[in-house]
Structure formats: C-alpha cells, structure tokens
Amino acid sequence: MNTHIGTPAKILFAGIIAAGLSTPAIAGAAESTPRTSDPAATKALYGQIYDQLKDGDITNGDALTLGERDATLCMMGNGYGVHGLAVGPNTSCEFAGEVFAGLIQGSTPEDNARDATPTTVDAHSPVTSQDYDMDCVTGQDNLITCSGGVGAAVYMF
C-alpha cells in the first residue's frame, strides 16, 4: 500500500502529534461552538466522543461512533479547530489526511476549518492513485463531514 502523504498533511500530522490532546479538551470543545451550530447537538456529539475515549481503550485504527455514524479513528490532535479525524467504511486514513490537507490549504493552525465549509475538496487517494471530489459541510453538531468518491466519508470533529 502506498502511504504517501502530501507536505501539508505531514506538517499537520507532526503538529498534532507534538501537541497531543487530552480527553478533557474534547469535552471542553463542545462548549465553544461556532455561530452556525446547534449547541445541544454539539454537546451531545462531543459527549459521546468523550465517553468513548475517556478510558483510553480507543486508539488510532479503532471503531468509533459519531452520532449515528460508524467510523474508524485516524488520529487525535488540536489545530484548525479540529480535535480528531475519522473515516467511514471504504475510506483510508491516508485519504482522510489528503482531504484534510485540501480543506485547510492556505490557512493556519489558529484558523477553524469549519469556516471553509461548505466547499468541495479535490483529494488524491494514496490507496487507489485516483483523484476524488469530496463535498465538505459542517453539520448542526459541529461535525465536518466530507463525502464523495466511491462511497468515501471523512469526519473531522
């Protein structure tokens, strides 16, 4: 499997790994919501995430539930207003990194990726060696969902 990740994604991954993220930070994220979100929905989503992560049994590559969505956790971090990156079925974490890099292109870690949605991101899949358009939106629960390609789903919370 080709695991090439573009330079913006490498920088982001390095920053996220260096910064780390504690589960209290995830719980606190629900309290600061952008103007377009529903605070109750955001609090419910982040509460659900916190409950799944608080005991440390879920790590990168493990199953995670995001609202009604089944996902796989790719990484945790803190930058661009994003605390975690996850994927749905038929989607690789490498591709999620490319989608995220496309979404944050031209911004800084202090910016909020939600401000860039709705948008379409053209991302290259290191697994299929194909380019795919991913439509990204921020839901009422503050979850960024990018979908497209061949049933691909990338989640940023």
Rank of each mutant, 00 (worst) to 15 (best):
N112H: 10
F100A: 01
A63P: 15
A152N: 14
V127F: 06
A25T: 14
Y46K: 04
Q140W: 02
A152G: 06
G81F: 01
M156W: 03
Y132G: 09
T23V: 14
G149W: 04
Y46A: 05
N60T: 15
T145P: 00
N60V: 05
G61S: 06
E31A: 11
Y155Q: 05
M75E: 07
A9I: 06
G67Q: 10
T138P: 00
A152R: 11
S147I: 06
A29D: 05
V121F: 03
G97Q: 12
F100V: 02
E31H: 06
Q105D: 13
V87F: 10
G77H: 04
S125R: 10
M76P: 00
G79A: 15
D135N: 13
I58H: 09
A27Q: 06
L45Q: 06
T108E: 13
R35A: 07
A14E: 15
G149Y: 04
V99H: 01
D111A: 11
I11N: 04
D131I: 04
T108R: 15
Y80S: 08
I11W: 00
V127G: 00
G151C: 08
R69P: 00
A71K: 03
M1C: 15
G77L: 01
E68M: 07
K54C: 07
R69F: 04
G106A: 06
Y155F: 14
V82M: 14
T119A: 14
T119S: 09
G15C: 03
G102S: 10
G61L: 03
T36R: 12
I49T: 06
G149M: 02
P89H: 02
M134D: 02
G97Y: 08
V127M: 12
M134K: 00
S92C: 12
T72W: 05
S32G: 04
T119N: 04
C146I: 03
Q130P: 00
V121K: 00
Y80N: 09
T36H: 11
L21E: 11
L73I: 04
L12H: 13
D122A: 10
G77M: 02
K10H: 07
I5A: 08
S37K: 05
E110S: 13
A101Y: 03
N2G: 12
A40R: 15
P109C: 14
D131M: 05
F157K: 05
A40N: 09
D115H: 11
A9L: 12
P126W: 02
L85D: 08
G81S: 10
S92P: 13
L73F: 00
G102K: 07
L64D: 10
T72M: 10
T59S: 15
Q130Y: 08
V87R: 09
T128F: 04
N142L: 14
M75A: 12
T138S: 06
A30R: 12
N90M: 09
T138E: 09
T117W: 03
P126M: 08
D133F: 09
A14Q: 14
N78M: 10
